[in-house]
Structures are given as C-alpha cells and as structure tokens.
Simulated assay, not measured.
Amino acid sequence: MFILKRQDVDIKTMQHPGKDQPIPILTYQGQTFRLLSVFNAAQEEDARALWRDLTDNRGKACVLLEEPERFSIWGKIRLDQPDLDDGAAAAAAAAAAHIKACLLLVQVLYMDVEDLLGPKQARQFETELSTVFAQWKFPQTGTPQAVRHLLTVDPLAMAPLPPWAEHHLHRLLEATYHMGKTYFGNTTFAARSLDALEDLPKGERQDFLAWLKNSPTGKVWL
C-alpha cells in the first residue's frame, strides 16, 4: 500500500479499549494503522518481503515505515472497532493451514535427522531450532519442552496452534532448509518432507503449496 518515512506520519499511543495496555497508532492522511511487526536495519529485505506478501498476496492494507534504525509494518484499522486486535491480527497472523504445513515439514526433517544421523544430531537440531525461535521471537517457544512439543505433536491435532505471523513462517522455512542442507549435504530431504503434506486436507495442501511457490524464502523447498 504505502512505503513511508518517519516524517510522513504521526505516531501516538492510545489505551486498548479492552485491555490495560497502550497501543502504538500510526496516522497517515486520515487513515489509522496498528503496529504488526518490527525489523532491525539489517533486516530490510525481510521487512519488504513480508510487506509485499501482506499487500500483494493477502490483500491487506499495510504501511511499511522506513526509519534509520528499523523497519516496521503497520496494518490498517478503524478506531471504532470493538476490538483493536481484530484488524491487526487478521493482517499479522499466518493462516492456520500454513502453520500446520510448516510444522509438518520441520517434524519430518527432524525425524529424518534422528533416524538417519542418530539421537545426538537430533538433539543438536533441537538446539539450533531453539536458537532460531529465540532470535526471531517466535511466540510459545521459550522452553525446551515447548520446542519438543512442536517437534513431536501432530500439527493436525495440535490445539491451539502457535500464534505465529507470516514472517515467522518465512524465517522457519529459510532456517530449516539451510539446516537440512547442512545435516544431509544435499537437498533430497525437501522432497521427503513435502510428502508429509499428504496428511493435510486437499484444499489446505493446495493452498499451502501455492503460498510456498510465491514465498520469497519458502519456494526453495519445491
């Protein structure tokens, strides 16, 4: 929708109508936007990729704000909404089918590491994945038990699914693909992992594969 500079916009905080917390609100030409994601200066490419995915592929009205030390993405809201989280969550949250599919890919990769390379390498895989989760601030991944849960519980039966945003999925796919190449020395693991998507309902599988094909970081799996 828009790529703006700090001097183009007005940013204030307001009280959430249903929660005891302040909310940053960006105003531009009479329109209001809620903060969705923040990236540091070195993550410009990631910020632009997420912004383009939200605007071009998901039809969301979003602003990409460029500042000297960071990039941030803001989703359009109406201040008269009953719950300000609704508009932001709709733009920020990844589709449940995409979260399930990504978890399936990672779980099969993890099982391949354990079966083919042994328990020691599987533990190393868990450690590296935990580092990715911490670096990119994935919700609900703060303990070894939480990471193990995500690696071992069937995503089709997982309730609730982790509340991850699109940019989390981009980072997860990018990082685990790189890990797979490092562990196995080739990319044949990707085809084996993709076979796991047969467990998804046909419509969800087709939707995810289409999303994966258009994803700047996920299409390497195909």
Rank of each mutant, 00 (worst) to 15 (best):
I23A: 11
N40W: 07
P22G: 10
L64Y: 06
L212P: 01
L209C: 06
T13Q: 15
H167Q: 09
T55I: 07
K213L: 04
F33W: 12
D85E: 13
L161S: 06
L222P: 05
L105R: 03
R52H: 13
P119R: 15
L194F: 03
E67M: 09
A175Y: 02
L194Q: 07
G18N: 08
P216Y: 01
L26P: 11
L35P: 07
F39Y: 12
H170S: 00
Q21I: 14
T32P: 02
Q43P: 03
M1V: 07
I11Y: 04
A47L: 07
L36K: 10
A165D: 08
V153A: 01
P17I: 04
T141S: 10
G118T: 07
Q43S: 06
P82G: 14
W136Q: 07
A157V: 05
D53H: 08
G18Q: 12
K137V: 14
I99C: 05
T176Y: 02
L4V: 15
L194E: 04
T187I: 09
T188C: 13
E44W: 15
A88Q: 15
P155Y: 00
L161P: 03
G203F: 09
N214V: 00
Q124Y: 08
W221M: 05
T188G: 04
T152V: 01
P22N: 14
G75Y: 09
I3K: 06
K12G: 07
P17A: 03
G180Y: 06
Q21V: 15
L156W: 05
E198L: 13
Q81S: 15
K213P: 01
L156V: 01
L151F: 01
D195T: 12
Q121K: 13
A190P: 06
A93C: 07
A122H: 12
D112C: 12
Q31R: 12
L156F: 06
K219L: 12
D53S: 03
P17G: 13
D80P: 05
A210V: 03
V106H: 08
K76F: 05
V113G: 03
I11A: 04
M14D: 11
E166A: 04
C62D: 13
R123N: 14
M179T: 09
N214T: 08
I25W: 02
L36E: 11
A42L: 10
L200A: 02
T187S: 11
P17W: 06
V9T: 14
C102I: 09
R58P: 00
P201W: 08
V63H: 02
P155Q: 01
Q124W: 05
A191K: 14
A97H: 02
A134S: 09
G87M: 11
P17S: 09
Y177E: 07
P163L: 13
L209N: 09
L54Q: 14
L197T: 02
Q135R: 12
L161F: 00
Q29M: 15
A210L: 06
P160Y: 01
E45W: 03
P17K: 11
V9F: 11
N186L: 05
A96G: 06
K202C: 14
L172N: 02
L129N: 05
L222C: 00
Q124P: 01
G180M: 07
